[in-house]
């Protein structure tokens, strides 16, 4: 089983690398969106290929580990969690890619007053904190850190819910911002989805560590 132990560690490191990579992708995509930095957006788009390659590698390694080592108990939970975490991370990177595409496709920077009105900064900072929590949680098997994510996701959900009304008001005040408002609305929706995906990752970390299934539970 020494070889299994080694393979498991290699896979664990690959998930950590994927986590770092996807975290950077979404952080850069947000930054590119706020500052309308086309170069940074292009970098995110370019790196999507690497994310996809890493996604395939982890999925293949999980399959190999299952087939060759017949894992049980904590090892089985690790593989199940690694597979799902990898899947969610890849989807986070997809959202980063799509946010960056808006930056490249649009000529104008989103009006700072619009970003301020919907509290985009707060949403972004909350997301950074959530990403930080799941990184620590995964690396240190720190369930406490993973659980912090659930409360933070509620902040993101709240901002998302009120964004429709806020943008509607802004459009009523100035109809020329319609296109910008629609893009911003779409990006906020993607951010909200990223929040959900981070939450799913936190659930998987808790399952891996404590064998506790949190999926579909209201109180976490």
């Amino acid at each position: 089983m020494a070889n299994a132990e080694y393979q498991r560690e290699v896979l664990n490191q690959a998930v950590i690398d994927m986590l770092d990579m996807c975290r950077l992708q979404i952080e850069k995509a947000k930054e590119a969106f706020i500052t309308h930095d086309e170069d940074l957006a292009e970098e995110v788009i370019h790196k999507e290929t690497r994310v996809n390659a890493m996604d395939l590698r982890i999925a293949r390694d999980c399959e190999k580990f299952l087939a060759l080592y017949n894992p049980v108990a904590v090892d089985l939970r690790f593989i199940m969690a690694a597979l799902k975490i990898n899947y969610e991370l890849e989807r986070i990177a997809d959202h980063a890619y799509n946010i960056s595409k808006y930056v490249v496709d649009e000529d104008k920077k989103i009006e700072p007053k619009l970003l301020k009105a919907i509290q985009f900064d707060a949403m972004s900072e909350t997301m950074d904190a959530m990403l930080n929590h799941i990184t620590i949680a995964y690396q240190d098997k720190d369930v406490k850190s993973a659980r912090k994510v659930f409360k933070k996701d509620k902040v993101i959900d709240k901002i998302n819910r009120r964004s429709f009304v806020v943008l509607e008001e802004e459009i009523k005040k100035d109809a020329s911002i319609i296109q910008q408002a629609l893009i911003l609305f779409s990006v906020v929706k993607k951010m909200e989805r990223v929040g959900d995906l981070i939450k799913n990752i936190a659930e998987e970390i808790i399952f891996y560590s404590d064998a506790e299934i949190l999926k579909h539970k209201k109180s976490k």
Binding site: M1, P71, V72, A73, V74, D75, L76, R77, A211
Partner: peptide, 14 residues
């Protein structure tokens, strides 16, 4: 085989 209570059991089956 999914969540044994004892660490020794887990170490053995894994």
């Amino acid at each position: 085989f999914t969540n044994p209570a004892e660490k020794q059991t887990e170490n053995y089956i894994t």
